[in-house]
Simulated assay, not measured.
Amino acid sequence: MIVLVVVFATIFKEIHAFMLHSGAQSGLLQRPLASLRRSRGRPDSAGLFMVISTADFKPGVTIELDGSPMKVVEFNIQKMGRGGSFVRTKLRNMLTGTTIDHSFRGGEKVEEAMIEKVPLLYSYDTPDGLVFQNTETWEDCTVSRKQLTDAIPYLKDGMEVTVMMWKDQVVDVALPATVSFEVTETGIAADRAAASRKPATLETGLTVNVPAYVNTGDVVEVNTQTGEFVKRV
């Protein structure tokens, strides 16, 4: 009986050692856990970038096209005969700020732009661009106005924003959903009805239509996506 136990133990050890050796050679035992947790897309054969399908497109998705990071602004799926389709998109170049129209085949694979999100504080405006500060290192970085055209009217000193970086370049900024501003000037309402609107200039120079009851010196909340008045604070 003792001899049989020893024999089985020896066989088990040899099988276990063989499995460890095979797993190490195939890389399965050394594969990082993070590589198994990708929510969408898949790496290329070298593992250098992520590939997604046009089925993953939605406003805000970032892809690389002709060596530049592009953000999907709009997309529309067009059906064709025999089950085919193509996807018409409006893309914004995140480096230059220009917008282009581009069509893809339905299901076409494209490279996803790997965007890093970094929380920064907006400091001030200069002739060279907008200055942001890293709250951990206290280092400043200057971003061209052309890259942040849509965000400029909503930026206030000391505002915390999420800056998007692509290959160590700042390419975009994510603003809070709403921001409060002081009204510096108001226009004249079209009529005296309670629901009438009038133009108002805010502290950053942004102009929005506000209810007739809003006056100079009031603080109002504005939707940063639509530029519309939300409420008086």
Rank of each mutant, 00 (worst) to 15 (best):
A212D: 08
T224F: 00
L155C: 03
L29C: 04
A177S: 06
V73C: 09
T184A: 02
P69T: 02
T207C: 02
T178E: 05
R88N: 14
A151F: 00
Y124A: 09
G83P: 04
V179I: 07
Q133W: 03
K231D: 13
K117W: 10
R42I: 04
E221L: 07
P69M: 01
K198M: 04
V220E: 08
A193S: 13
G27F: 07
E136H: 15
V170S: 03
V210D: 01
D101C: 04
L175E: 00
N223C: 03
R92E: 14
R192E: 13
G23W: 12
F132T: 05
I52Q: 04
A24T: 09
E185H: 07
P211K: 02
N223R: 01
G67H: 05
P199H: 05
S22K: 12
V6A: 15
M19G: 04
A17F: 03
E228T: 13
D172A: 05
E139T: 11
K71E: 14
P199D: 05
N93E: 05
D56N: 09
T186I: 11
T186Q: 02
K231Y: 06
F104M: 11
L28F: 09
E108L: 08
G217R: 11
P69A: 01
F18I: 08
Q78E: 12
E112S: 14
T226H: 05
T54V: 07
H102Y: 15
G81N: 09
I52S: 02
G83A: 10
E74C: 01
T162Y: 01
K109S: 13
V7W: 15
K109G: 02
G187V: 04
V5I: 12
A193P: 00
S26Y: 07
A9F: 11
Q147P: 02
F49D: 01
T178I: 04
V222M: 01
Y213N: 12
G81L: 09
D157H: 13
T99A: 14
E203N: 06
F86Y: 15
V230C: 10
G106V: 01
V6N: 12
L175K: 00
G205M: 08
T207N: 05
D191F: 02
H16Q: 14
D172V: 04
Y154S: 03
T207E: 06
V118N: 08
Y124F: 11
G81M: 04
T207G: 00
R92I: 09
G84R: 13
A34S: 10
Y124L: 11
S39A: 05
T184M: 07
N209E: 10
